[in-house]
Design a binder for these strands. Structure first.
Lengths: 222, 222
DNA sequence: TTTATTAATGACTTAACAGTCATTAATTAT
DNA sequence: ATAATTAATGACTGTTAAGTCATTAATAAA
């Protein structure tokens, strides 16, 4: 009796126990990003990740041998490709360094800060001491390449006389920090205290103005 | 037989089961800060906190009714007193706003960033979504008062013509962010990847230079 | 259609840890 | 010295969730 009705609906809803070897890993990674973002690494339940991907926990272990491995796959898929993109922009850019810097910052904004991968950064910082291998992996593949990229841009601007002669290494931190701050803030406190959220519309424009003002040679208006 | 030897060593080592009602809460909070800083809130074990304070877990519950309450006590003891100090500086300050801003930033550096309480901020951001009450408490008692304090300073400088007319709300974020970045970084990635640590000596001076350069009226050299 | 293969399941095992409470012993009062 | 008080203990309970594996059933091969 129930089956007669079920069959008429079967077109959209996927079968239970459907076998989809190829699609699973990607679906599991997507589900994992969501759950890790919401709960953090330690508190994320594999049961939840599995459910969100439409399978059960046992299935997760067919494709990933542990929670760590699943997490690493998520980082690999999201953050690392963004860095590579920034590096190619630097290599090919022709215009002024001011334009280059602005372009890379806008790229990072749309490619990382405003994506669903944004919460992962918070997570790494949060759980670095509990999962050192994760932290090393992230440092080597995301942080270091990202910092080197920005450092090269600053050096180019100082050499060309567009920027004043700042301490490159620290200035990299000062430029990066507001992005991370917003990423961290929006996916933590702001999710819990609704009144706490930041004006994200104008944030990027204000930041670019702030950074360029600080780097500008004094006495110039541009 | 074993007792004969034990007794001869008893002078320095405190007695087991020693009763020290007054000293316990403070010792537990100190131990808690260390363990929370190392492991995060969820992963911190009360057994570890108790052991580090020289007692057992049962004792913790004589003084704090839950893990959350112990954590809140730690935040109260460390971060909230710093904010209050900054507020009094603002109220009484006589000199230029540039000097005021520099003074408050240096105060924050020595009163928070360079103390053992520094890792607590990371922790709140990390676990805000799992422990919303903690996040609210922190937002209300630390973040909001801290931001308001900085906003008032910026407004004072704009009104007096010392600073250019920036968007106050965003600029507060830009000024705060490098501090938080350093705090987060040093107590996460840098603990695990030794080569990753930042030059902390000159960080504060560079930052103040960077901030003031950005706020300066263009065309001026000071 | 029948058989073989293997993706998917979910009940089970194990471990960790927050929080409880009856018992023990250090300290204080008598 | 003895009794009364209560700080401290640690064995215990309950819960949660990672990881395992024998069973089940969807698909491919014969």
């Amino acid at each position: 009796m129930p089956e007669a009705y079920a069959i008429s609906q079967e077109v959209v809803v996927p079968h239970r126990r459907e076998r989809r070897k190829d699609a699973r890993p990607g679906e599991l990674i997507d589900a994992a990003i969501d759950v890790f973002a919401e709960r953090g690494f330690a508190a994320a339940r594999l049961d939840d990740i599995a459910q969100r991907a439409g399978v059960t926990k046992g299935t997760v272990y067919l494709y990933f041998s542990s929670k760590e491995e699943l997490f690493e796959a998520a980082v690999r898929q999201t953050l690392m490709s963004s860095i590579a993109h920034g590096q190619s922009v630097l290599r090919d850019f022709q215009g002024s360094t001011t334009e280059l810097l602005e372009s890379v910052l806008r790229g990072w904004w749309h490619g990382v800060v405003r994506t669903k991968a944004a919460p992962l950064a918070k997570l790494i910082f949060a759980e670095a001491t509990n999962f050192p291998e994760l932290a090393c992996f992230y440092h080597e593949n995301v942080i270091e390449p990202g910092r080197r990229l920005l450092a090269r841009i600053l050096e180019r601007g100082i050499a060309s006389g567009e920027f004043r002669d700042v301490t490159v290494n620290h200035t990299v931190s000062f430029v990066i920090a507001p992005f991370l701050y917003l990423q961290f803030y929006e996916h933590s406190i702001a999710m819990v205290v609704p009144a706490a959220s930041v004006e994200t519309e104008s944030f990027l424009d204000s930041l670019i103005d702030y950074v360029l003002a600080s780097l500008a040679i004094r006495g110039r208006t541009t």
